[in-house]
């Protein structure tokens, strides 16, 4: 019941609700002013996104409210669904069936169980060491060498991105900070708010001022103006949230800058994956956003880096 007792959590979630109310009102107002067909489509997508944000915020709040296990289960499910979207796009063969069953039903739950019991020594190597080698062996044992290296690496990549990297977000709940005990949910909230806020701010700055495309071959919607404005604004946002974290104001700003930059990198890399596989989105599960993986692509890069940077400089 951390939410009921933690004033910082209450203020963070209160702030999110106020922000969503404002966004909803603005979205409705903009919808009334849209005239031509293109503007209307943009506004419709914007409002679908805002509605989805409500749902995502409520689910996130409930899982944090339940306690540490809630967040672990939530991110475990996100990983499972993200892995599902990723593997769907990967050229596996029937011989990989067993290896895939292991990935979905054993390795993924095991990783999150290790995160839940805060076994850092094992959750930080389970997938990069044990699963990495085991999957190669399992696929070799199936006796089908066609495109062996491509198949093995694609499945390993899927696990690293969708399961290993993402699991660092709930792993923050067990991270001890020198002089602050285990701040737990506020660290997780700081990460999620800054990384998702950075995505939204880059989108807004891009729509308002975007001119020069930053990566036309990978992601035609990303612009230099959106990137610079969004990252700067997210850095400011993070700095202004310092009171909820164990960081000083300049440290919180610096952490937010790292989160925004790695988040952008994650979005870019996952765009390259989508381009390679010839799809626009990873899925259709979240109206207006696409798949789960489209929503957490920036988190897959930001979560492990934020965890290790924090652990290195502040861990205790």
């Amino acid at each position: 019941m951390s939410l009921l007792h933690d004033a910082a959590l209450q203020r963070l979630f209160g702030g999110l609700i106020i922000l969503l109310v404002v966004a909803t009102v603005v979205g409705r107002l903009v919808a009334r002013r849209a005239r031509d067909e293109r503007a209307l489509a943009t506004v419709r997508n914007l409002n679908a996104r805002i509605n989805a944000w409500w749902v995502m915020c409520v689910i996130f709040a409930i899982s944090v409210l339940i306690g540490p296990i809630g967040a672990v289960i939530l991110f475990g499910l996100i990983s499972f669904l993200a892995l599902r979207e990723f593997i769907t796009l990967v050229p596996t063969r029937p011989a990989d069936h067993r290896a895939l069953l292991w990935s979905f039903f054993l390795i993924t739950p095991l990783q999150y169980w290790l995160v839940a019991i805060h076994w850092y020594g094992l959750f930080s190597i389970l997938i990069p060491v044990y699963a990495f080698l085991f999957l190669a062996l399992r696929i070799a044992m199936s006796g089908d060498p066609t495109n062996f290296l491509e198949r093995v690496s694609a499945i390993q990549w899927a696990l690293m991105i969708c399961v290993y990297s993402l699991s660092y977000a709930p792993a923050l709940l067990g991270l001890g900070i020198r002089g602050h005990g285990t701040p737990g949910p506020t660290l997780l909230l700081f990460l999620v708010i800054v990384v998702q806020g950075s995505d939204v701010l880059q989108y807004i700055f891009g729509k308002l001022f975007g001119r020069r495309k930053i990566a036309p071959h990978l992601s035609p919607n990303k612009t230099v103006e959106g990137f610079v404005g969004g990252v700067a604004a997210a850095t400011l946002l993070g700095a202004l949230l310092w009171w909820a974290t164990p960081f000083a104001i300049w440290q919180a700003g610096l952490q937010a800058l790292i989160i925004a930059l790695t988040g952008f990198a994650g979005g870019l890399v996952m765009s390259a994956v989508k381009r390679d596989r010839g799809v626009k989105d990873f899925g259709t599960i979240i109206a207006g956003h696409g798949g789960i993986l489209d929503r957490v692509d920036s988190l897959t890069f930001a979560a492990p880096i934020f965890f290790h940077v924090t652990r290195f400089f502040y861990g205790g």
Partner: peptide, 18 residues
């Protein structure tokens, strides 16, 4: 599309792809 990848011939458990 893809159902043969989810549950190919000769297997009992489905891999949950889309």
């Amino acid at each position: 599309e893809n159902l043969n990848r989810i549950l190919p011939k000769g297997h009992l458990l489905p891999v949950p792809m889309l």
